[in-house]
Design a protein around this nucleic acid. Sequence first.
DNA 1: GTTAGTA
DNA 2: TACTAACAACGCACC
DNA 3: GGTGCG
Length: 304
Amino acid sequence: MIRPMRVGRHEVPISNPDKPFFPEVGLTKGDLVRYYLDVAECALPHLRRRPFHMVRYPNGVDGEFFHQKRVPKHPDFVGEQFVRFPSGHTTLFAVIDNAAALAWVINLGCIELHTWHSRIDDIERPDYMLIDLDPTTGDQWHHVREIALVVREVLDELGLASYPKTSGATGLHVLVPIRPQIRFPDVRRFAKAVAEEVERRVDDQDVATTTWRVAERRGVFVDFGQNARDRTIASAYSVRPTPDARVSAPLRWEEVPDVDPAAFTVRTMPARIAEVGDATVGMWRRKAVLAPRFERLGLEPPSL
DNA sequence: GTTAGTA
DNA sequence: TACTAACAACGCACC
DNA sequence: GGTGCG
Ligand SMILES: [Mn+2]
Ligand SMILES: [Mn+2]
C-alpha cells in the first residue's frame, strides 16, 4: 500500500506507512515520516549540501539493515554529489536539501541521518570538528557528562564555540563549527590533540581514554578518529535504531551535567523543540577559523 | 524498499 | 510474470 | 602487508 504525502510543493509516495518500525513503542513507518517532517526545519540545516550516507532498515528496527552510498534513481528534488575515492571507486551520493527529499529517504528505510562532515561546496574540507564520546561499558553515562564538560573547557580556552548533543545511541557528540579551510587529516590531527588534552586533564584511565585497542580500553573512548573523510555521524535530530526510538538531541551546555539521553525520543522531541527551541540555532553562522589555533596546541600548522 | 537481472 | 540478488569497501593506528 | 577499529 502506497500513501502519497504532500510535502511543500512536492508529492512523496510513502510505501507501507502502517508497517511497524519500532514495535516496542508502537511507532510505524508513517509515524517516522511525520516525526521528520515535524522537525525538518531544525534538522535540515545540518543535512544540507552534505553527502548523505544511507543506512537502510526497510523492515524497521528489528529487521536487517544495509549501507548504501549510491543514490538510487530519484526525483529532481533529491540532490546528488559525485565523490571519487583514492582506490578509484566512485559514488554518486544523495544530498538532502529539503523536506521532500528527507521524506523520500525515510521511505527507503533510512531511520538514521548519516552525513559527511563536509559540504559539497568543498568536499575535502569539513565545516565542523567533532569530539565523539563513546562509552566502553553500559554504565558510564555519568563519565560521559563529566568528560563533555572537560571537552568544553579545553575548547573554550582555545576560543572555540562548541555544541553538545546526545548521539541518541550510547554516547555524546561535541561539534565545533569551523570554516571549511582545513583538510580532513589536519582537522583530525587537531581533534587528536584536543582529545589527548582532555585525557590528560581527566587523568583517570577508568574514566576517559584515547586508547585505540578495545581490549585495553576501560574508560569512555574520546574518539577523535571520526574526523576523517568518508566517516559520518548521526546528525542532530536523527532518530537512532533503538527499540525506544531515541533521537540525537542537541543540548545547551547547562543541561549537560544531568542530562538523561533516554528522555529524547520520536515521541518527546517535537514537544521539547516547542518548549525550549533548537539548541543549534545560529551554529552555522559561528564557524571558527581553526588554522591559528594549531600553534596553541603545539601542532605544526595545517597544509593548504 | 527498489531496481536490475534472469528464467 | 515471478523470483533473486544487490544495495559500503574508508582511513587510519598499530603489529 | 595484515588486522583492528569506528
Ligand atoms: Mn559515537
Ligand atoms: Mn566513535
